[in-house]
Design a protein around this nucleic acid. Structure first.
Lengths: 180, 180
DNA sequence: AAGAGCATGTAACCTGTTACATGATTAT
DNA sequence: ATAATCATGTAACAGGTTACATGCTCTT
């Protein structure tokens, strides 16, 4: 499943522009599927060419025309077929874990920094989850709720693991030891 | 951090061939960093060209020469510099979660199949973790142990979440309800 | 006899990323 | 004033995947 298919899926929720979809990639999808304008716009053009979307150009002053895409019946069918794949992957590419594998070649302060940065990133996701929930999930399909919960569970697990096991990689400083 | 850098890191553990490194990508690194021969071999060639590795060709009968690579001092330095990046990413690209977002457009049996397939994949990772541990970790650097533990923690969290929340997406069948 | 493991590599391909290009409006 | 938001798009580039090409040995 590529960016094209995800765009198709997002458009089952109603017409939207590339700009709108980007925002969805940055909120609901942020924790498991990244996409930039450089892949979204070409995806939408291609889907239109192939008749899976229709495009309505809404003229605007001072801005480029807003292009609102709408999924066609053919698009829905193609999406349904894509969703028939019962072996979708879940890939992780972690420079973080790769780095930690070589922690013994690093300086203590750099290891600390890497760990802290990761915890910071996780915290950002958790904040994002919270803000999404505040916007109200009542009208969300169950699938979206399931996915959000999945993200929360995994984020919590990662956070806990790092906090409880960072001592494996970094010696607690004298000050911290004194405080504790 | 790309495949090149990871290969460099793996070679700090001692000389190895591309074939050997592939096996490491399939065991220790399998849960967070994939790489195939198509990226490993070119990476090693390139690193040799750049003087970061030396290569000893060991003639073999009936097989291509075994090329054993060894990291150079320059290679170690380049690796150390790469490990100075204190903001390494941790990216997830999940067709699984993307699919689940659109579960309301799917048939029950397909949702079941997707969920079961994912649980199967997770189980495979857990088996892999077990077999790695049985090989003995005593001589492993702390970083590698940390990373293995991270993988185990995340796998457990994903497994639990799916088992405890699949009811959000699929109605329990009459038979199961009767049994329970 | 079949299949797995050993062992290397290339070329075409696919996909996505980054940088560039443009420019008005609105909020701080 | 400055930054953010709205709004689209392309071209060059980077990186990895897949399929292809070769062929022996050991295990089942």
């Amino acid at each position: 499943m590529d960016v094209k298919t995800v765009c198709l899926g997002m458009l089952t929720d109603g017409p939207a522009s590339g700009y709108d979809l980007k925002k969805e990639f940055e909120s609901t999808f942020a924790h498991f599927f990244a996409a930039g304008y450089g892949s979204i716009y070409p995806a939408l053009s291609r889907l239109s060419e192939d008749g899976l979307l229709t495009c309505e150009e809404i003229p605007q002053e001072g801005k480029p025309d807003r292009k609102v895409y709408c999924i066609t019946d053919e698009g829905r069918q193609v999406l349904r077929d894509a969703l028939k794949n019962t072996k979708p992957c879940h890939k992780i590419r972690s420079e973080f874990l790769a780095t930690m594998c070589f922690a013994h070649l690093m300086e203590q302060e750099d290891i600390q920094a890497v760990l802290d940065h990761r915890l910071g990133d996780i915290a950002k996701y958790q904040e994002l989850f919270r803000s999404i929930e505040q916007d109200g999930l009542c009208d969300w399909p169950q699938g979206a709720k399931f996915v959000l919960g999945f993200g929360k569970a995994v984020a919590r697990a990662m956070e806990n693991y790092i906090q409880e096991n960072r001592h494996m990689l970094v010696e607690e400083s004298a000050t911290e030891a004194a405080v504790g």
